[in-house]
């Protein structure tokens, strides 16, 4: 045991030394931008977004984000498949107190609203579809914790999730039809909507549209993961 621990510490110190050696050639706080500077210089004209991170995630590397959404979908499907039992139900022993249930019923719409705010304003403020969707999922997690028999409406959630996924691909395919490539920003580049109000809500082309879709998809998927993990299989 002691031997193993000493060996582990030795390995870690060695790896740490190597990483430090490599990082000593990467000065902290220096300007090392190459592509980043291009994005920063052209982000307003090319995408209409004020938040350069969002523009990179949704517009410049939108295809990558589609892959990311796919990974999240596969993970949530995997969780549901691995935890699948014939009979799964909530097995909470005690009912939540009045303060808990009333409080969570009162807070639920506001948490969902805040999640919606985060993903609709993704091109203006820090945040976007993924944090917004996660916030919405926390609202459902709260309901699961407060009510001993609560379950999400499975049918509706599955349909919403599927429609959101199809919506993302559809937006990309419309770009392919109008412009020249998949996920071409047709609202900004072809229609030219919102060029006069950069920095306000109705700008940035399809970024708010896609982030709304992503927010809904991530929210439903994470709620599904919460659902699979909270319920327990009965024999």
């Amino acid at each position: 045991m002691v031997m193993k621990r000493a060996l582990a510490i030795l390995t870690i110190l060695l790896i740490g030394y190597w990483i430090a050696l490599a990082l000593s050639h990467v000065p902290f706080g220096a300007d090392k931008m190459l592509v980043g500077q291009y994005y920063l210089n052209h982000v307003k004209a090319q995408t209409g977004a004020v938040n350069a991170v969002t523009a990179v995630v949704v517009n410049y590397r939108g295809f990558d984000t589609l892959g990311e959404v796919t990974v999240l979908f596969i993970a949530s499907t995997g969780v549901a498949a691995l935890l699948w039992r014939k009979k799964r139900k909530r097995t909470a022993k005690t009912e939540g107190s009045v303060v808990l249930t009333t409080g969570s019923r009162l807070l639920f719409p506001f948490i969902v609203l805040f999640g919606g705010y985060i993903f609709i304003h993704g091109h203006l403020t820090p945040g976007g579809g993924f944090p917004g969707g996660a916030t919405i999922a926390t609202a459902f997690l709260m309901l699961y914790l407060a009510f001993s028999v609560y379950e999400i409406p499975h049918k509706g959630f599955e349909i919403t999730e599927g429609l959101a996924g199809m919506g993302y691909v559809t937006v990309g395919l419309i770009g392919l039809a109008i412009g020249s490539y998949f996920l071409f920003d047709w609202i900004w580049q072809s229609w030219g909507w919102g060029h006069s109000n950069i920095g306000r809500l109705f700008s940035a082309g399809f970024i708010p549209v896609i982030y709304t879709i992503i927010g809904i998809k991530v929210g439903t998927e994470l709620s599904g993961i919460v659902d699979s993990m909270v319920k327990e299989g009965g024999e």
């Binding site: 980043g36 999240l72 993924f130």
Partner: peptide, 28 residues
Amino acid sequence: DPIPQALVLTAIVIGVATTALALTVAIN
């Protein structure tokens, strides 16, 4: 630089997904 932040945004989401999957395997 916006690129590392965009990459980390992706990495956080993938991290959540893989952690959930790993925990599911642990439950099983």
